[in-house]
């Protein structure tokens, strides 16, 4: 089973990286961008029996820093192997 962990800075935590990307987008002439926040996407391949609680513990224990970050756990539907047509 594939699981995506989306880690993002909490609202109110300064994101200098996001700000720099924002300025770069403006420099490229893209107008209308009001804010940019840069986060992190972590993809896990886990055995089917992995519980949400276990994933939650992984996020809290290591993958996200709860002082500054939020996380979202997104189990991916198993794409499986495509049979040839």
């Amino acid at each position: 089973m594939k699981v995506r962990i989306h880690v993002s800075l909490k609202p109110g935590v300064l994101d200098p990286q996001g700000r720099a990307v924002h300025h770069a987008l403006e420099g490229l002439g893209f107008s209308g961008v009001q804010d940019v926040r840069v986060g992190r996407l972590i993809e896990l391949e886990v055995v089917e029996s992995t519980t949400h609680d276990a994933l939650d513990a992984m996020c809290r224990g290591l993958l996200a820093n709860m002082v500054i970050e939020n996380y979202r756990i997104e189990p991916m539907p198993d794409a499986g192997v495509q049979e040839p047509a």
């Binding site: 300064l14 200098p16 990286q17 820093n65 002082v67 500054i68």
Partner: peptide, 17 residues
């Protein structure tokens, strides 16, 4: 020390990057 929970808070990227 902050990541290990021995001190509170966190160290972020410098504001000026």
């Amino acid at each position: 020390l902050t990541e290990a929970g021995l001190l509170p808070g966190a160290l972020l990227h410098n504001a000026g990057q």
